[in-house]
Design a protein around this nucleic acid. Structure first.
Lengths: 130, 130
DNA sequence: TTCAAAATTAGTAATGATTACTGATATCAT
DNA sequence: ATGATATCAGTAATCATTACTAATTTTGAA
């Protein structure tokens, strides 16, 4: 028996399921603390890492220096707002053909790619048009 | 006069020009120290950041927790070896069409994308086939 | 149910990359 | 040459994340 049940891990998992906005460890910590007032940040990190390693979560490194986590584990693309930093899912299918294109004149083996789209989100577009 | 000449910055720039392997701040530090034995790591970081902000360098966040820098500022794609962590340039043109694809059914504005291709580099492929 | 082995935890310390601060030095227009 | 100011070296601080440790939970079997 390698993995034991833990209420804290379950609470973290359940919280992640409710969020589509790719929260950071700190946001998870703040929220799970409502149910477990003295859970420690280390426990949050350990479980987020564990769940990511098991494939139940995705760890996103979007370039803002903080890791984001995503309970939607099926491969998909992300958009990052350069204005507010919000991370949102994109509803387009994975474009496998670019792996083939990238492999042209390249002597290694390409297994896949990670793409982040950057721009301005709907919310920030509205704000700036005032 | 906002920007003054500095030998240290010039040395950092020149070192970056000689390297195609996207060194980290620490690697730059180690090398520039040959010419400036008591340059400080802070100076290296400050200048790498300054040059990146001016557009003379690219700051790459490839997902390994350390920033890499690239003197080739024209947009291009990168490949990261999952085995050894090496970062190499890919010789394919930017595929602008995926920005359009990504914009389908999306209400924000997409300005561009950053893609990292992952796999095994030529060198590591050869080693593992022993 | 009780018990002990092993996983997990809370709390805290340590790490590693990067940034900020400070008094001394280098650059440059006048 | 000189004064204003950008830059520096050295060091301290910050921030995200990981590691450590003694106490608590979980769990399968007695």
């Amino acid at each position: 028996m390698a993995l034991k049940y833990s209420r804290q891990r379950e609470a973290i998992k359940e919280f992640m399921m409710t969020r589509k906005d790719h929260p950071t460890a700190d946001v998870v910590y703040m929220n799970v603390r409502k149910e477990f007032p003295n859970i420690s940040l280390g426990t949050v990190y350990r479980n987020l890492t564990l769940l990511s390693d098991m494939g139940e979560l995705l760890r996103l490194r979007v370039g803002d220096g903080v890791d984001h986590f995503d309970a939607t584990t099926a491969p998909h693309y992300h958009f990052i707002c350069k204005n507010c930093g919000a991370v949102t899912d994109l509803e387009i299918p994975i474009i496998h053909s670019i792996d083939t294109i990238a492999g042209d004149n390249f002597n290694g083996r390409i297994n896949g790619h990670v793409t982040y789209f950057y721009g301005t989100c709907e919310h920030c577009l509205k704000k700036s048009s005032n």
